[in-house]
Structure formats: C-alpha cells, structure tokens
Design a protein around this nucleic acid. Structure first.
Lengths: 187, 187
DNA sequence: CCCATAACTAAACGATTGTTTAGCTATTTT
DNA sequence: AAAATAGCTAAACAATCGTTTAGTTATGGG
C-alpha cells in the first residue's frame, strides 16, 4: 500500500451518471467525463477500466436510486393506487435539472444497438424485468383479479412507464400528468 | 450543364434514412453512409451539404412515408376506431427488418440534445404537432365530446404513440398488441 | 528515515470522425 | 470536334475519439 485515492469512487460515478443522463452514451466523451468527474483520465481508467465500465457503473448507480422509489410500492395494500403513486414519483425523480432528460435506463435502451456491450444489455433487461415484476406483485394485491389479467396489466404498465420516460423528453409536465390520469382511469 | 448524376437523390436518401433508422444519428458515420447510399462522400456533400443535411432529408423522407398511414384516419367516421387502426398501422410500418428499431422520429427526439441542430429540432416538433392535430380532428368525430376532453385525449394518444415507438425497441410484438388493446379499452 | 508502491500529471498513441481538395472523366452545348 | 462544365475517384485535412504510457509525486510499512 502506498498513496491513497484523492477521490471517492461512489461520488465520481454519480457525477458521471448525471452526465450520461443528460447527454447519452455516444455524445459523452472521456474529456467531458474528466471534467465532470473532476479526476484525470488515468484515474478513470484505473477505477473503471473503460468508458463502457464507467457507463455500467452509472447504470447501477441510477438503478439504486430508482429502486428507492419502488419501496412504497412493495408495502402498498392497494395495488393500482400504489402504481399510480409510483408513476408520479418516477416523474418527480426526473425533476428540476433533469426534467426533459427522460430516464437514463430507457434512454440507454433507445440508444444502444444490438452490437452494444452484452453486459450493459443484460443489466438493462434485468432492470426492466425487476420493475415489471414489482408491478405484477402490486397488482396481485387487488381483489378478484385472475392471474392472466395481472400479467397483461403488468405488461401494459411497464410499457407505459417506458413511454412516459421517452415522452418526458418532449412533452410538458402538465401533459404527462394528464397522461398518467388517463392510464389509471378504469384500471 | 455537363455530366448527369449517376444516382437519384430520392433513392439514396431513402437508403440513408433506413441506415439512420437502424443505427441512430451518432453511430452512423459518413463511411457507413457512403457504403449504404452507394455513392462517394463528395457526391453526398454536393447533394446534401453535410451529415446533418442528410439526416434532415432522411427525416423528411420518413415523414412522407408515415403520413401515408394517416390518410385513412382523415377519412374515418369513427374517431377512436380510426385511431386504433392507425396505431396498428404504425406498428406494422415498423415491421420485418425494422421491427425493434422503433420510430425514426422518436429515436431522433430521444437521441438529440438541446444543442442539436435547430432545423432538425423544428422538424421533429412540427411533425409531432401534425400527428397530434390529426388525432384531435379524428376525436372530434365522436359524438357528445366536449372540446376540453378532446384536447386531453389527443395529448394522451400522442404520448402513447411515443411510448409505443420507444417500447417497440425493447418489448415483444405480442406485448405491444396487448398495450394497444389496453389503451383503447374505455376510451 | 527510506524504500517500495500506488496515485497523480500530462503527453502521445493509433484510429476514426466529418469535411475538403485536387485531379481525372464524361457529357452537354456551341 | 472542341471547349466548358459538372460529376466522379481518391487522397488528405484537422479535430477528436477512447486508450495507453512514461515520468513525477506522495504516502504506506519496515
């Protein structure tokens, strides 16, 4: 052991995450990452191996933050109402400086090609499946639901979430609230 | 006048459009465009000025093709039913080799940053507004609708279309059909 | 206190990006 | 047929991409 790192890896990866969130993967260069993370290229490479590595850790960082807003959904007694709250929290999560940037995960899914890094693709798939699973579990708490309907509704809501994330890059907040209301009428 | 062009601009721009559709803007290089369009870099620049210029024309080309599936919607007597058909046609438009690539327009909207080319941003906005307008016009054909409801529903459907386009990159066709069915229950 | 070691700085790497230029070829017009 | 003009090929442009390497600085354990 010799010299200690002058930066905290969790802190710098959060900064990287926000940069990727704002700019996407391709548009974000190592030069921009250096500046935003506040450390040298060498430090980035020694900590994360590659640009892909930084991105992968950024996804995990974002996931961790988004998982926090899933917690109330796990404890809800009213499935649909809990889902509705989740959608609002999801929008709120992208508030302020990040509104109009959508969701890092869906942005990544939209940007990445089929020849993209398999590890990243796997991470995105895993994350989507996790959320959809939580939706299904929440819906099971509704009374008198047959299992087939639950699966279909879970599909519907996860796609709606994707849509909401994508649309939030283009539409106004009021339109999104309107959209959420429409999703949950007669559900 | 001297030598004639050995290529048709409309034909090569359609090839470029399909390449952008598959790969997005950033990932598509001039080298790839040369190969796909079947003409030299010089020819591309003399015809379209820049990579941005090629992309802009590609968007217009895509728009023209997508507008064709709006025609039935204009003549429909049943607004909601017409809209539903439009959604299925929209999915079908992205069929075969392009399924899983979403919609060129929404992909572009997701990828482009706020510092992107203003002309492209304007084109995307114009296109979105046009479609939303057609949705509102179709909804007016429903009986006993108050104008406020129509506007809200038009917002809802245009966001749904964005969502569908984005989600089609990730989800299976059967899930999308399921999603469309859910959109139109109780509308 | 000194040496080993790890983190730092900064320069350079080859490859690829979008774009331009020079020179050759073909066709239209007078 | 000759001159003019526009499209073609192919090489080169500067800039930037992600990545690596050499050299310096600072801090750990013996």
């Amino acid at each position: 052991m010799a010299r200690k790192k002058e930066y905290n890896e969790d802190e710098v990866i959060e900064k990287a995450m926000r940069l990727f969130w704002r700019n996407g993967y391709e548009t974000t260069s190592m030069q921009m990452l250096e500046k935003e993370m506040g450390i040298n290229k060498f430090s980035i490479y020694s900590s994360f191996g590659s640009k892909n590595g930084v991105f992968l850790e950024s996804i995990k960082c974002y996931k961790k933050k988004l998982n926090d807003i899933l917690i109330p959904l796990k404890n809800t007694t009213n499935g649909v109402e809990g889902l509705k709250q989740y959608f609002y929290d999801f929008i709120a999560f992208s508030k302020d400086e990040h509104f109009g940037k959508g969701c890092l995960i869906t942005n990544a899914a939209n940007e990445l090609q089929e020849d993209a890094d398999p590890e990243i693709k796997a991470e995105l798939r895993k994350f989507t499946a996790e959320i959809r699973n939580q939706f299904a579990l929440a819906l099971q708490k509704e009374k008198n639901q047959d299992p087939n309907t639950i699966e279909k509704k879970a599909d519907y809501f996860i796609i709606s979430m994707f849509g909401l994330a994508s649309a939030s890059r283009v539409f106004q907040k009021s339109q999104l609230d309107n959209y959420i209301e429409n999703i949950f009428t007669n559900s």
